[in-house]
């Protein structure tokens, strides 16, 4: 025997293999004396056929029920004709705040909770709280609607702590009614108590700020009056002289200087 014997056609190796199996085959012959079942040809089990039939039936009914009519523009499996979204401030007799809070809940969970958390407390050092926030609870919703529409960037002080992060713009994610609902929800949850916000107010601000691309900075928002502008007003909120003075006082000295220089030009 040499290293060659691992070659396939080496007669010595083949003979080796033959001898080894001959012994085994003798035993195998003994083993075959026992009756063996007809292996390899078990017929289909009746229960399996029944099971497959039940599955096919289920498949048919599930497909009919949850396919949204096989429409390309139907995204929810549960309805074939979607109900129109609830309109806040309509002619309904229900309390508008309760209705808006109900409609705003899923929107909050989808768009806001990932950062501001389900309990509205935010994440320390990262995302400012909404619960008890002076920005949320301002007398009017002018600033918070602007934040939701166009996002917010840079440092902002909330409840005495400073945060520096980026918030997304939601102007394309939610329509006026949805923004009104979610803002009303925020202003009336987590222990907050604020007035309801109407879709008209959102629409007005959306139109007034239509040209805006960048997110707001806190300083810019300080310059926006917290309330006013009125229902259905398409123009930017008209400010009283007192409000302007108040807003100017709130500005940091440096910003005020820049502003005055700009005006002077």
């Amino acid at each position: 025997m040499s290293a060659d014997s691992n070659r396939p056609l080496d007669p010595a190796a083949a003979l080796d293999r033959g001898e080894a199996t001959d012994v085994v085959q003798m035993h195998a012959a003994v083993q075959r004396e026992r009756p063996e079942p007809m292996e390899g040809s078990e017929p289909l089990n009746l229960w399996l056929v029944v099971f497959i039939a039940v599955l096919l039936f289920w498949a048919g009914s599930y497909l009919t029920q949850y396919s949204g009519g096989f429409r390309a523009d139907e995204f929810s499996e549960n309805q074939i004709n979607p109900a129109p979204p609830p309109v806040v401030g309509g002619s309904g007799g229900d309390d508008p705040v309760t209705k808006a809070v109900k409609a705003g809940t899923p929107l909050y969970v989808t768009y806001c909770a990932p950062c501001h958390q389900g309990d509205g407390n935010g994440v320390a050092g990262q995302f400012p709280p909404l619960a008890g926030s002076e920005w949320v609870l301002a007398e009017g919703p002018n600033r918070i609607i602007r934040i939701v529409l166009h996002g917010l960037g840079g440092p902002i002080t909330v409840k005495g702590s400073t945060y520096n992060n980026q918030m997304n713009a939601f102007r394309d994610s939610m329509d006026d009614v949805q923004i009104a609902n979610v803002v009303t929800y925020i202003r009336n949850s987590f222990g907050n108590k604020g007035s309801a916000v109407s879709a008209a107010e959102v629409a007005a601000i959306r139109t007034a700020t239509a040209a805006r691309v960048d997110p707001w900075s806190a300083a810019e928002l300080e310059g926006v009056a917290v309330s006013g502008g009125g229902e259905g007003a398409a123009a930017p909120a008209a400010l009283t002289v007192d409000q302007i003075k108040e807003a100017l006082k709130a500005l940091p000295a440096e910003d005020l200087k820049t502003l005055l220089q700009d005006v002077a030009k």
Partner: peptide, 12 residues
């Protein structure tokens, strides 16, 4: 029976 052959027959 195709996996089996003379060298490695059924039953072994």
């Amino acid at each position: 029976l195709l996996p089996f052959d003379d060298e490695e027959p059924v039953g072994q």
